[in-house]
Amino acid sequence: KSEISQVFEIALKRNLPVNFEVARESGPPHMKNFVTKVSVGEFVGEGEGKSKKISKKNAAIAVLEEL
């Protein structure tokens, strides 16, 4: 299972809201860097990556460590 689906499963079991959002985009158009924030109830994680998908996955990994 992907880290993102694990976050949603845990949140569902604990009845917590999940929110993913792109917090920052930086860099030139051909080499963008994304920072995504995820919140699961009061737990927050942040991930960085060269694409929105990678930064979302890294944010999920960060919040899984707290859950």
Rank of each mutant, 00 (worst) to 15 (best):
N33H: 14
V18K: 03
S5Y: 04
I61E: 08
V18F: 01
H30L: 08
E21Q: 14
R14S: 07
F8M: 10
V35P: 04
F8C: 08
F43E: 05
K1Q: 09
I54D: 13
K50A: 13
N33A: 09
N15V: 01
I4K: 04
P17W: 04
K52A: 11
V40D: 03
S2W: 00
K32C: 12
Q6I: 06
K53L: 08
G41D: 01
V22L: 14
M31I: 11
K13I: 08
V38C: 15
V40T: 04
E66I: 15
A23P: 14
R24Q: 12
S39C: 12
V22I: 14
V35C: 12
K32P: 11
K37T: 06
Q6M: 10
I54Y: 03
S55I: 02
P17F: 06
L67F: 06
L16W: 12
V44A: 09
K50P: 15
N19A: 13
V22Y: 11
I54P: 02
S55T: 01
I61L: 12
K13L: 09
F8A: 07
F8N: 07
H30Q: 11
G45P: 00
P28R: 10
G49R: 02
Q6F: 02
N58E: 08
T36S: 09
G27V: 05
E48A: 14
G41V: 00
N19F: 12
E42H: 14
L12E: 12
E3W: 07
V35T: 13
S51K: 06
K1I: 09
K52D: 03
I61Y: 05
L67R: 01
V40E: 04
V18W: 01
K56S: 02
P17N: 11
A62M: 08
E21V: 13
S39V: 13
G45K: 11
L16F: 05
V7L: 10
P29N: 14
N33G: 08
E25F: 11
F34M: 04
N33D: 06
V40N: 03
T36F: 00
A59F: 00
M31E: 15
G41N: 01
V40P: 05
M31G: 14
K37F: 03
E48V: 15
L16I: 09
L64R: 04
S2P: 07
E66N: 14
V63T: 03
K56H: 01
R24S: 12
K50Q: 13
E46V: 15
N19V: 11
V7M: 07
